[in-house]
């Protein structure tokens, strides 16, 4: 198959991704249209479908916000053959797409020592700290991708009133477990690393541990709810 044919082979049906080459060792599946929760699910679903089947020569599938890369060994498989196989997998009724959507609850301490920017964010968004924490813990987030550093979840769903630009000066060291917001997203720093997001709390949950099974507590498509640790301790939450 010529390059042009591969590149131009468009969507097969509505909601189907467009295929292109991401270099000579990966195929990029690009979803067009609104950047919505539905798209997140389509990508997470395609990711799980492709990961659940064994295609010889396929090394890894990696979700992005609006696309999915399938990395392969070009010595074992050509791009053209892989594209055909991927189309088959995505349309195979026997390969189950994402069905159960988990909700992961993450306990967070909003105490001053764990939330360096909480006061500042409250002032910038013209809320009291109490209102801010109430809004944040009432929000249902969704994991878009894991990236930036191992185990770092990009979470969408942050209420518009909490959208703020990144900090003018990034921190050299953000403590592990920091729950942070920037732009339209929330995130959790799984390990100590540099970072430019606003730190509004901290979880004691270990999100990423190379020696644990599973390695990572969150996956694209998961729903995430943050629970105020104080309310757990005082028994206000009963589930």
């Amino acid at each position: 198959m010529a390059d042009s044919e591969l590149m131009n082979a468009g969507p097969v049906a509505t909601g189907d991704p467009e295929f292109s080459c991401l270099g000579d060792a990966a195929i990029l599946l690009q979803w067009h249209g609104a950047d919505t929760a539905e798209q997140t699910l389509q990508i997470a679903s395609a990711f799980r479908m492709i990961s659940s089947v064994e295609i010889p020569g396929v090394l890894a599938a990696v979700p992005g916000f609006t696309s999915l890369a399938v990395h392969f060994d070009p010595l074992r498989l050509t791009a053209a053959v892989l594209c055909e196989q991927l189309r088959l997998v995505l349309h195979d009724d026997r390969v189950m797409p994402l069905q159960e959507i988990r909700t992961v609850r993450i306990p967070v301490s909003f105490a001053q020592a764990d939330a360096a920017d909480l006061q500042d964010v409250a002032e910038q968004t013209r809320m009291s700290v109490k209102q801010l924490v109430a809004l944040f813990t009432a929000t249902e987030f969704r994991v878009r991708i894991i990236g930036f550093t191992p185990g770092f979840p990009y979470l969408t769903g942050l209420p518009k009133s909490l959208h703020l630009p990144r900090r003018a000066t990034p921190r050299v060291r953000v403590p592990a477990g920091s729950v942070a917001i920037a732009g339209a997203q929330a995130g959790i720093y799984p390990t100590e690393s540099p970072g430019g997001w606003h730190l509004i709390g901290r979880t004691s949950l270990t999100l990423f541990d190379p020696l644990a099974v599973p390695v990572c507590q969150l996956a694209p498509g998961d729903r995430v709810r943050f629970i105020d640790q104080q309310t757990i301790q005082s028994g206000e939450v009963s589930e």
């Binding site: 991401l22 270099g23 916000f65 999915l68 890369a69 990236g147 550093t149």
Partner: peptide, 30 residues
């Protein structure tokens, strides 16, 4: 501002200052 999307070793990204960055083995996957 763009969303975070997959990259591969060998990808040439265009930085905000207009210079290319050639990704090598340790580049983040997105």
């Amino acid at each position: 501002e763009r969303t975070s999307e997959p990259t591969a070793p060998g990808t040439l990204q265009l930085l905000p200052d207009g210079s290319p960055l050639l990704l090598l083995a340790d580049a983040a996957p997105t």
